[in-house]
């Protein structure tokens, strides 16, 4: 019973390298391949719902703005968007599962989403455990 974040990246500047031939951008797929991919993602989320493991899933716009405190009585300072940002998070899914093993299994299943030619994209997903608020009672 632990929550995990499955992070999906658009682009990464760190972490493992993609499997050769699997990083073809989606806009270079056929329409049917895109439709199949999206359907797979929806079915995946439905599967998690059915198992009672789904908590949340959201997609993010690729374009964002940096914002910081501008000082007393001043408006927020903004910067960007930066088109060349190396690390872009495409979206996330939060799952509540029995074990880390199960979280990895779900991430691997998501990574098998079909891409070009209907082949699994083998995309790397980042899996991060949530911190609970309180330690267990026997701490």
């Amino acid at each position: 019973m632990a929550k995990y974040l499955l992070l999906k990246h658009y682009r990464r500047s760190s972490g493992p390298t993609a499997l050769p031939g699997t990083d073809v951008p989606m806009d270079q797929w056929t329409e049917q391949e895109v439709a199949d991919h999206i359907r797979f993602m929806d079915d995946f989320a439905d599967g998690l719902r059915e198992r009672g493991e789904f908590v949340d899933g959201q997609a993010l716009s690729p374009e964002g703005t940096f914002v910081r405190y501008g000082g007393e009585g001043r408006p927020p300072v903004t910067d960007g968007p930066f088109a060349e940002t190396k690390d872009l998070i495409a979206g996330w899914m939060i799952i509540d599962v029995d074990s880390q093993e199960r979280a990895y299994e779900a991430a691997a299943e998501l990574s098998a989403a079909p891409g070009r030619g209907g082949e699994p994209i083998h995309e790397w997903l980042e899996v991060r455990p949530f911190l609970t608020r309180e330690p267990s009672a026997d701490a």
């Binding site: 019973m1 929550k3 719902r49 059915e50 198992r51 009672g52 493991e53 789904f54 908590v55 949340d56 509540d96």
Partner: peptide, 15 residues
């Protein structure tokens, strides 16, 4: 109590 959506918990229980 477990910070999950009600539908998720409902599924977990009926399963």
């Amino acid at each position: 109590a477990y910070l999950v959506p009600e539908t998720t918990m409902g599924q977990r229980i009926s399963r």
